[in-house]
């Protein structure tokens, strides 16, 4: 009988913080005793304990502090961070998985690597983001009080960057970079000229190997800009600047590679010389064509492409800020 009372009290206090247990135990024991007649029977005890109700609910009343991992105040922020990080991590690990699976050569392995990468990446990201927010909640990290300055601009539909297109861009970047590197490393190259029974690799292998680090750098930068696009989801001046810097970097890299003397393989040089010689009769013209015109022409092409891209991002950013300026002035 006493045992039942003790068990009830234990069931309440075990759900309470360590510091509170002794005192609550004492209180409850006294209160329950008061509720019982002098010589209480087992049925009396049962009645009283039943009237007190479920120990879980009693403990809930005693606790009355927050019982959530992430507070309502932080939850929106949690969700938006979760979205971005899970997306990025899933794409990244999927591509990484594919990269590691390509050497095995089997298509099944590559596809399953992609899916498991997606899944694992998403899971990992979700776990770490959630843990971070729970810790922040536990240690009482507060949001700073809201002021009117925190009001976001109303996004213009035209300058919101579509999330799906950014992700597609990211996937393409990673695949392209990885694919190229793998091709170079395994001594295969896409462009092969077949002339009769001659198979000519247009680029010299040595040059190709030197290109690899640049491929990685450009790929990484492109991913970085994509992450920025995902995170901000609209054209801001910072994003515009990042994009322009990225353009400058990849175009300068490409142009300097074009100017490498050993870029083209000797076989290709011989082949193109003979080809051009049959068309043009002037050897010096052929030489000029080969060494400078084509290279300069391509360089100019890349510069034009880059300028167009920069102009587009600037235009988008201006549109975005003009739109918001309109709304604040009215």
């Amino acid at each position: 009988m006493n045992e039942m009372i003790e068990r009830y009290i234990h069931d309440v206090t075990r759900r309470l913080p360590e510091a509170e247990r002794a005192e609550v135990q004492r209180e409850l024991a006294a209160n329950i005793n008061d509720m019982l007649p002098e010589s209480a029977s087992e049925q009396d005890v049962i009645n009283v304990l039943q009237s007190l109700g479920s120990p879980r609910l009693m403990a809930e009343q005693y606790r009355q502090n927050r019982r959530y991992l992430i507070s309502p105040a932080m939850f929106d922020l949690y969700l938006s961070v979760l979205r971005v990080v899970v997306l990025v991590a899933a794409v990244f690990f999927a591509c990484l998985g594919v990269l590691l699976a390509i050497p095995s050569g089997s298509l099944e392995d590559v596809i399953s690597a992609a899916f498991s990468g997606l899944f694992d990446g998403a899971l990992q990201a979700a776990f770490w983001v959630t843990l971070g927010f729970c810790l922040a909640e536990y240690y009482g990290v507060q949001r700073k009080p809201w002021t009117v300055d925190d009001l976001p601009q109303i996004p213009q539909a035209s300058v919101t960057i579509s999330r799906s297109s950014t992700i597609v861009g990211m996937i393409l970047t990673v695949f392209f970079t990885v694919f190229m590197i793998v091709m170079i490393v395994t001594n295969q190259w896409l462009l092969l000229l077949v002339r009769g029974s001659n198979v000519i690799n247009p680029f010299s292998q040595a040059a190709l190997y030197r290109i690899i680090p640049f491929l990685i750098i450009t790929g990484a930068l492109s991913l970085f800009v994509s992450v920025l696009k995902l995170y901000w989801a609209r054209w801001t001046w910072s994003l515009c600047l990042a994009n322009i810097l990225y353009d400058i970097v990849w175009i300068s890299i490409t142009i300097s590679i074009l100017h490498w003397p050993d870029l083209l393989s000797p076989e290709f040089n011989a082949f193109s010389r003979s080809l051009l010689s049959t068309v043009l009769n002037d050897p010096s013209l052929v030489q000029a064509l080969q060494s400078t015109w084509i290279i300069n022409g391509l360089s100019a092409l890349f510069i034009v492409v880059g300028l167009i891209d920069c102009a587009t991002s600037i235009a988008n950013t201006v549109k975005g800020s003009l739109g918001s300026a309109k709304s604040t002035s009215s």
Binding site: E27, N31, D34, M35, G53, Y62
Partner: peptide, 25 residues
């Protein structure tokens, strides 16, 4: 007053309150 006495008092005066609300309160 002690817990149970207070509970009985309040209930006698027509205030609807349970033991598992009053004690934690």
């Amino acid at each position: 007053k002690y817990g149970y006495a207070l509970l009985q008092d309040m209930q006698a005066k027509g205030i609807r309150i349970e033991a598992n609300t009053l004690y934690p309160l």
